[in-house]
Amino acid sequence: MTEYKLVVVGAGGVGKSALTIQLIQNHFVDEYDPTIEDSYRKQVVIDGETCLLDILDTAGQEEYSAMRDQYMRTGEGFLCVFAINNTKSFEDIHHYREQIKRVKDSEDVPMVLVGNKCDLPSRTVDTKQAQDLARSYGIPFIETSAKTRQGVDDAFYTLVREIRKHKEKMSKDGKKKKKKSKTKCVIM
């Protein structure tokens, strides 16, 4: 069974824990209790493949930012979460993405942009803004509501699919490099 290491990042209060708990335990946590770091595991079937999701729910508070490099190193894919009623959390996505790329030393890291709290009427981040940002990053965008469960499975499952595509691409690139290195030079 394939294991996928997913990391949920975003500013404090955007609903990272609520999304994760909704996926794992099928219930909505409405009281806000700032996370330092929590880890969850769940076995699911995605596109006919049974897999184990190892999900790291991270601290959004700035005082825990020193811990970010460590979990970013171990993560295979990242859910970059903002709240649709919090423009600052949307603007912060850029910083999370840049930090992930720096730590992973790669421009090509599996990510999904997630606009959470889409059940709320007080939207300050337009869907088109988020779609445009995701398009500019070359990553999928999904709106979710941890409260109603809308888009929750889709967000995590899409990230797994992005990781699969990335692994497939990397193995193809690896095979191309191996083929090239088999060419021999004969000096007579």
Rank of each mutant, 00 (worst) to 15 (best):
2 T>K: 08
2 T>M: 15
2 T>P: 14
2 T>D: 15
3 E>A: 09
3 E>P: 13
3 E>I: 05
3 E>V: 07
3 E>W: 05
3 E>G: 05
4 Y>R: 13
4 Y>I: 13
5 K>N: 14
5 K>L: 02
7 V>D: 05
7 V>I: 07
7 V>E: 03
8 V>M: 05
9 V>G: 10
9 V>I: 09
10 G>E: 04
10 G>C: 07
10 G>Y: 02
11 A>C: 12
11 A>F: 14
12 G>K: 07
12 G>C: 06
13 G>R: 07
13 G>W: 12
13 G>V: 13
13 G>P: 15
14 V>L: 10
14 V>I: 12
15 G>W: 02
15 G>I: 02
16 K>M: 01
16 K>H: 03
17 S>A: 00
17 S>I: 01
17 S>E: 01
18 A>C: 08
20 T>D: 05
20 T>V: 08
20 T>Y: 00
21 I>Q: 14
22 Q>V: 03
22 Q>S: 08
23 L>K: 08
23 L>R: 07
23 L>H: 12
23 L>M: 11
26 N>T: 08
26 N>R: 11
26 N>V: 04
27 H>E: 15
27 H>N: 11
27 H>C: 13
28 F>M: 04
28 F>S: 02
28 F>T: 02
28 F>K: 01
28 F>E: 01
28 F>R: 02
28 F>Q: 01
29 V>M: 11
29 V>E: 12
30 D>N: 09
31 E>Q: 11
31 E>Y: 15
31 E>A: 09
32 Y>S: 02
32 Y>C: 02
33 D>N: 01
33 D>C: 01
34 P>F: 06
34 P>Q: 03
35 T>K: 00
35 T>A: 00
36 I>V: 08
36 I>P: 00
36 I>T: 02
36 I>N: 00
36 I>Y: 02
37 E>R: 00
37 E>V: 01
38 D>R: 00
38 D>I: 00
39 S>Q: 04
40 Y>E: 00
40 Y>H: 02
40 Y>F: 03
40 Y>I: 01
40 Y>M: 01
41 R>I: 08
41 R>W: 10
41 R>L: 11
42 K>E: 11
42 K>S: 09
42 K>Y: 08
43 Q>I: 07
43 Q>M: 13
43 Q>F: 11
43 Q>N: 13
44 V>F: 06
44 V>D: 13
46 I>E: 15
47 D>K: 14
48 G>N: 08
48 G>I: 05
49 E>D: 10
50 T>E: 14
50 T>W: 08
50 T>N: 12
50 T>V: 14
51 C>S: 11
52 L>Y: 12
52 L>K: 14
54 D>Y: 03
54 D>E: 08
54 D>W: 02
54 D>N: 06
55 I>P: 00
56 L>G: 00
56 L>A: 00
57 D>W: 00
57 D>F: 00
57 D>R: 00
58 T>P: 01
58 T>E: 01
59 A>K: 00
60 G>P: 00
60 G>E: 00
60 G>F: 00
61 Q>E: 12
61 Q>S: 12
62 E>T: 04
62 E>W: 02
63 E>S: 04
63 E>F: 03
63 E>N: 04
63 E>V: 03
64 Y>W: 04
65 S>P: 00
66 A>T: 06
67 M>E: 00
67 M>G: 04
68 R>C: 02
69 D>E: 11
69 D>R: 01
69 D>L: 01
70 Q>L: 01
70 Q>C: 08
71 Y>M: 00
71 Y>T: 01
72 M>Y: 01
72 M>S: 02
72 M>N: 01
72 M>R: 00
73 R>G: 03
73 R>V: 05
73 R>D: 03
74 T>H: 04
74 T>M: 07
75 G>R: 02
75 G>V: 02
75 G>Q: 03
75 G>M: 03
76 E>Y: 11
76 E>T: 10
77 G>L: 09
78 F>M: 03
79 L>D: 05
80 C>D: 04
80 C>F: 15
81 V>G: 05
81 V>Q: 07
81 V>T: 11
83 A>T: 12
84 I>P: 15
84 I>A: 14
84 I>L: 14
85 N>D: 07
86 N>A: 10
86 N>I: 02
89 S>M: 02
90 F>Y: 11
90 F>T: 04
91 E>W: 03
91 E>C: 04
92 D>F: 06
92 D>W: 14
92 D>Y: 14
92 D>L: 06
93 I>A: 14
93 I>V: 08
94 H>P: 02
94 H>E: 11
94 H>L: 14
96 Y>F: 14
97 R>C: 15
97 R>D: 10
97 R>K: 12
97 R>S: 07
98 E>D: 06
99 Q>A: 10
99 Q>E: 04
99 Q>V: 02
99 Q>N: 15
99 Q>C: 04
99 Q>Y: 05
99 Q>F: 03
100 I>Y: 02
101 K>D: 04
101 K>S: 11
101 K>F: 05
101 K>E: 12
102 R>C: 15
102 R>D: 10
102 R>V: 07
103 V>K: 03
104 K>W: 15
104 K>V: 06
104 K>S: 10
104 K>D: 03
104 K>C: 12
104 K>P: 03
105 D>Q: 05
105 D>F: 14
105 D>K: 14
106 S>I: 13
106 S>T: 13
106 S>C: 10
107 E>L: 11
107 E>P: 12
107 E>T: 13
109 V>E: 02
109 V>Y: 04
110 P>I: 03
110 P>Q: 02
111 M>S: 02
113 L>A: 07
113 L>S: 03
113 L>V: 09
114 V>C: 06
114 V>K: 01
116 N>Y: 01
116 N>F: 01
116 N>R: 01
117 K>R: 12
117 K>Q: 14
117 K>W: 14
118 C>A: 10
119 D>C: 06
120 L>R: 13
121 P>C: 07
123 R>E: 13
123 R>I: 10
123 R>P: 09
123 R>W: 07
124 T>F: 08
125 V>H: 13
125 V>Y: 11
125 V>S: 11
125 V>A: 10
126 D>N: 09
126 D>R: 05
126 D>H: 07
128 K>I: 09
128 K>L: 06
128 K>P: 05
129 Q>S: 10
129 Q>K: 13
129 Q>P: 11
129 Q>T: 11
130 A>Y: 14
130 A>G: 06
131 Q>G: 13
131 Q>Y: 04
132 D>S: 05
132 D>L: 05
132 D>H: 06
132 D>I: 05
133 L>W: 13
133 L>T: 11
133 L>Q: 07
135 R>N: 09
135 R>A: 05
135 R>H: 08
135 R>F: 04
135 R>K: 14
136 S>F: 07
136 S>E: 13
136 S>N: 05
137 Y>A: 10
137 Y>T: 09
137 Y>Q: 07
139 I>W: 05
139 I>E: 07
140 P>G: 03
142 I>C: 08
144 T>G: 04
144 T>H: 09
145 S>E: 15
147 K>M: 08
149 R>K: 06
149 R>D: 13
149 R>C: 15
150 Q>V: 06
152 V>Q: 13
152 V>R: 14
152 V>L: 11
152 V>I: 11
153 D>M: 07
153 D>C: 06
154 D>A: 07
154 D>K: 06
155 A>C: 10
155 A>M: 14
156 F>Y: 13
157 Y>R: 12
157 Y>I: 13
158 T>P: 06
159 L>P: 02
159 L>I: 05
160 V>A: 07
160 V>D: 04
161 R>G: 13
161 R>I: 02
162 E>M: 06
163 I>G: 03
163 I>Y: 02
164 R>G: 10
165 K>I: 13
165 K>R: 11
165 K>H: 07
166 H>N: 07
166 H>E: 06
167 K>P: 06
168 E>I: 08
168 E>A: 08
168 E>G: 11
169 K>C: 08
169 K>R: 06
170 M>T: 05
172 K>W: 05
172 K>M: 14
173 D>I: 09
173 D>R: 12
174 G>W: 02
175 K>H: 15
175 K>F: 09
175 K>P: 06
175 K>N: 08
176 K>R: 05
176 K>Y: 14
176 K>E: 14
176 K>N: 09
177 K>W: 06
178 K>I: 12
180 K>N: 08
180 K>I: 06
181 S>F: 12
182 K>N: 03
182 K>M: 06
183 T>W: 05
183 T>L: 05
185 C>S: 14
186 V>A: 15
187 I>L: 10
187 I>R: 12
188 M>V: 09
